[in-house]
């Protein structure tokens, strides 16, 4: 599905990612974890064309997308949900959803709007409400619903459960599982909330200081005594 090869990237002169190589399999949830400043968020931004790439390759479904601008990457079926500012706060829920289908024809937009709302029925109650009046969990759902309108095959989430109450965080993670199971979407999930995320993951990678330290099955990571103590322990107590 998505393959990253020997990626070196960062912001201007500041290199964040060093020789990162990872593979994200189709219709699976891949979780990327790591301590603060390890480059997890930068990895997603880099895939989406928002940082400076010094060298390396990003391949999506056999297409090289390494140096494509964000809107081209978006049109290929990749959605990126940043941690914050992922909805228009001053627009209503309906306007937000319609903005997500900005380039679609009217009929297609209506159809996708309906199917997207099918996925998050509770949003139907708030259609005329401004997005800033929604709760944190509802906002994440709106953001996911907005990406769904564009029918992505790959969705990348940057810490979707940060700053959410545990119960709401659980709900958000449940809907991510539903995305995989019901819509067959490939998921890349960057999380601080490592244990909860690893429970739903099919695959796990650990980034430290911009380098891949572990790449394999979630249970191997959870059971690895050294890495588990050093990184999972630390990260989960920080949350």
């Amino acid at each position: 599905m998505l393959k990253v090869e020997n990626l070196n990237a960062g912001y201007g002169k500041l290199q964040v990612l060093h020789e990162v190589s990872l593979f994200f399999p189709e219709r699976k949830i891949s979780v990327v974890i790591g301590p603060n400043g390890s480059g997890k968020s930068t990895l997603l931004k880099t895939i989406f064309g928002l940082t400076k790439i010094y060298s390396g390759k990003i391949i999506f479904e056999n297409n090289d997308i390494t140096f494509l601008p964000p809107h081209k990457i978006a049109s290929m079926g990749i959605a990126y949900l940043p941690q914050t500012n992922n909805v228009f706060e001053n627009l209503t829920v309906e306007e937000n959803l319609r903005m997500a289908g900005y380039n679609l024809s009217k009929e297609e937009l209506e159809a996708r709007l309906a199917s997207s709302l099918e996925f998050f029925p509770q949003l139907k109650l708030y259609m005329k409400r401004k997005a800033r009046q929604l709760s944190g969990g509802e906002r994440q759902m709106l953001a996911i619903a907005m990406s769904l309108i564009r029918k992505p095959r790959l969705m990348m989430f940057d810490e979707p459960t940060a700053a959410l109450a545990p119960k709401i965080a659980h709900q958000v993670l449940r809907s991510i599982v539903k995305l995989r199971d019901e819509l067959g979407i490939t998921i890349i999930l960057v999380e601080q909330n490592a244990r909860a995320a690893l429970e739903i993951a099919d695959k796990a990678s650990l980034l430290v200081s911009g380098r891949v330290i572990f790449d394999g099955l979630p249970k191997d990571l959870l059971e690895n005594p050294e890495l588990g103590r050093m990184y999972l322990g630390v990260t989960s107590s920080q949350v």
Partner: peptide
């Protein structure tokens, strides 16, 4: 100039 490849797209 620092010898880095510039990302043309951004």
């Amino acid at each position: 100039k620092p010898l880095i490849r510039q990302n043309e797209s951004t």
